[in-house]
Nucleic acid binder design. Structure first.
Lengths: 244, 244
DNA sequence: TCAAAAGTGTTAACCCTACACCCATGA
DNA sequence: TCATGGGTGTAGGGTTAACACTTTTGA
């Protein structure tokens, strides 16, 4: 906060008064948890138990604790609900319209997070109405969560082409076809297989594992993983322009 | 906020308790006010009057009022300090580290705003230490405002190439040279004059005013303005890809 | 041997980049 | 007439986009 508000202040008591009276609000984080299951983009949702939104699908969030920062709160929520630590998160937007929450003024900071859908373990939430929902099936949600979801997905679509984050949604080892299908699911467009592969080859951030898929009734596919070292090396170069 | 926090709740009283006790904070907006003066990007700053940041340059912000939304609070701050309504604003990021503010927990939502530097009128703030600072001269600021400035400028650099917002920093009528210099100042790179003009021509969002600059000791330059109608028409097209 | 997905090269169109000179004006 | 910035076209290189067939495996 700047100092505009205290233009008549002779001392900081006015500040303190304002902090106490005028504009305090509860602060929460809401996590848009993206997953990918080889078919489409999924969102982990819970069933809302708060009137008037009882029964609607809701994002997963919590109040931010005293002495906790926003990223930390988001990580805590994610660990609580999925058991995963160090998940990739990205702050999206703050939502604070008066009236967005039935119990009073609650400012929420939205995060998107990308998890490998096969690695998570739903802890003790199984009977709490946790459910993976296809992103396109979520048309109405509790509170302003549909608006939060839309903003988060837009930012994901914007970021995924220029940052190495797609890999966060795939198993550690993946085929080029899986990678392409993921991009297609996120962006809603389709790529030419040969052009897509040439692009990835030219960016040079994948590690060829010299392993193959097994057990399919067709030719096995090579497995790759995202190579952090290669990316670090290559992203330092001036002419580097990650663009899928 | 989702419903994760209430997994043990039998009724909403626990909610209310939490809202009252646990995680309330003051909420402010801070505006990074960008201007352009034909030389470089400037930030409108004020002198901080709060220890321990007394005398340092500070962004301009205020507490968010009850029943005010975030965009509205930012617009109010901007009107108060510049006299301008309907300024272009963009929410950037929420900052809430415990300890970021000396008086207690204050979550601030950062906005960048783009104003035509010649149109604003400093209202009754002239003796409050308001000052346009060159963006590159601001190395230390009050609170975490340098971090906020950096995040805002990064987002501006990212947005300016793909959204028609550069014009918000120029007078209504401008020359192509002015537009090019603006982009160069924001992005820190230089463009080829002929290529830049060809690009703008191909995007086709400028209105040729058939007017010319006057009073210069050289050939007059054509004046253009941003054409909202053209942009609307052209941005609807599927193949449209604004990219300067 | 069949079905199903993996993998691979070439060409044409387009876009980006680099580059140099004449023009119109006021002093 | 000179100094100053305004304004314009072309050619080469690189990138993107469109396109179809062979390979490998399990059933």
């Amino acid at each position: 906060m700047g100092t505009e508000a205290v233009k008549q202040a002779k001392n900081i008591n006015i500040w303190l008064d304002q902090l106490n009276e005028e504009s305090k609000a509860a602060i929460s984080v809401d996590c848009v948890i993206f997953g990918y299951d080889d078919e489409s983009i999924k969102i982990l949702t819970i069933e809302s138990d708060m009137p008037p939104h009882l029964g609607k699908r809701s994002l997963i969030g919590d109040l931010v604790k005293k002495d906790e920062n926003l990223d930390g709160a988001a990580q805590r929520v994610l660990e609580t609900v999925t058991g995963l630590k160090g998940v990739h998160i990205q702050q999206v937007h703050a939502f604070a319209d008066p009236g967005r929450h039935p119990l009073g003024r609650v400012l929420t900071v939205a995060y998107y997070s990308l998890i490998k859908i096969e690695e998570y373990t739903l802890t003790d939430f199984k009977d709490k109405g946790l459910k993976w929902m296809d992103i396109h099936s979520l048309q109405k949600m509790a509170f302003d969560h549909k608006e939060i979801l839309d903003a988060s997905f837009s930012l994901l679509q914007r970021n995924v082409r220029t940052r190495p984050i797609g890999f966060e949604l795939l198993p550690k080892k993946f085929t080029l076809q899986e990678l392409q299908s993921l991009y297609e699911a996120i962006l809603g467009i389709s790529f030419d297989k040969r052009n897509f592969r040439r692009k990835l080859r030219s960016i040079d951030i994948l590690l060829d594992l010299d392993e193959f898929t097994e057990g399919n009734a067709h030719r096995p596919a090579k497995l790759y993983s995202f190579d952090h070292k290669k990316f670090k090396a290559v992203s330092g170069k001036k002419e580097f322009n990650f663009q899928i």
